[in-house]
């Protein structure tokens, strides 16, 4: 197959064109899209840093707004950390497909013979890598600021890492639905925030459980189960939403 493609190359031979069969090179397409999006992040690091700064800023507001009292803060810390991480991830979702849509590369991605649900996984994976993973790493530091009890920091990181992967997948459906709208950001929030509720419940639940000596692993396991279901279903929903948005 590859040999045939090479011989058709107009740069080498001006011979007759022939029809090609579809199906080759899905792995190359996936890794190229992954690499391209990561390269885009290194060219514009500000886009990836904004949600992290937002996360840190929101957490800073709570001791100022409520009370710097360690006992009071520790009580509400799991919930605050999770809500802030969720909003920070939401903030970055709007741009997931928008830039690609504006410059026409999304259209080109959809015109490849490869299955679109698999290609969008590459884009969602990059979103998680540059948003969810840094949020998970930053969360313990901010937890310290809210006097989160010792011994819960690893679970906090794990729950944010797992939960943010669900958020990236579910949020991408909303991002795909609103990509054609001029001001889709607010609508995106309204569409996906209700869907984030189960993730929030079990995410903060895991931290509360570890503080109270409960079954925190069960909460993480449920988050893992959410992620598995989202991985199976969300790519199809994202692909269908993109088709609806672009070709209505």
């Amino acid at each position: 197959m590859r040999q045939e493609v090479r011989s058709l190359d107009p740069l080498d031979s001006p011979g007759l064109l022939r029809a090609r069969s579809s199906g080759a090179g899905l792995g190359t397409a996936l890794s190229a899209t992954l690499k391209r999006d990561l390269l885009m992040v290194t060219r514009r690091p500000g886009d990836a840093l904004t949600p992290l700064m937002f996360f840190a800023m929101v957490i800073t507001l709570f001791p100022l707004g409520i009370s710097p009292d360690a006992d009071q803060l520790a009580l509400i810390a799991p919930g605050i950390l999770w809500v802030a991480a969720l909003l920070a991830a939401l903030l970055s979702l709007d741009g997931l497909f928008r830039t690609d849509h504006d410059d026409g590369t999304l259209e080109q991605l959809m015109l490849t013979p490869h299955p679109l649900p698999l290609l969008v996984i590459a884009k969602v994976a990059v979103h998680w890598l540059v948003t969810g993973v840094p949020l998970a790493l930053l969360a313990p530091l901010l937890g310290l600021m809210l006097s989160l009890p010792e011994g819960s920091y690893l679970v906090l990181s794990a729950s944010v890492a797992l939960g943010s992967a669900c958020i990236s997948l579910i949020g991408a459906i909303g991002a795909a639905l609103t990509v054609g709208l001029a001001r889709g950001g607010m609508l995106l929030a309204l569409i996906v925030l209700p869907l984030f509720m189960p993730v929030l419940i079990f995410g903060s639940g895991a931290i509360v459980a570890v503080i109270e000596g409960g079954a925190w692993l069960a909460h993480l396991a449920i988050l893992g189960a959410f992620l598995c279901v989202a991985l199976m279903l969300a790519p199809w929903a994202i692909a269908a939403s993109l088709r609806v948005s672009l070709h209505d």
Binding site: V5, G25, L26, T28, A29, T33, R36, L109, T112
Partner: peptide, 9 residues
């Protein structure tokens, strides 16, 4: 990127 997504080397 275009070469990669169109399945060419």
């Amino acid at each position: 990127w275009y070469q990669a997504i169109s399945g060419d080397q």
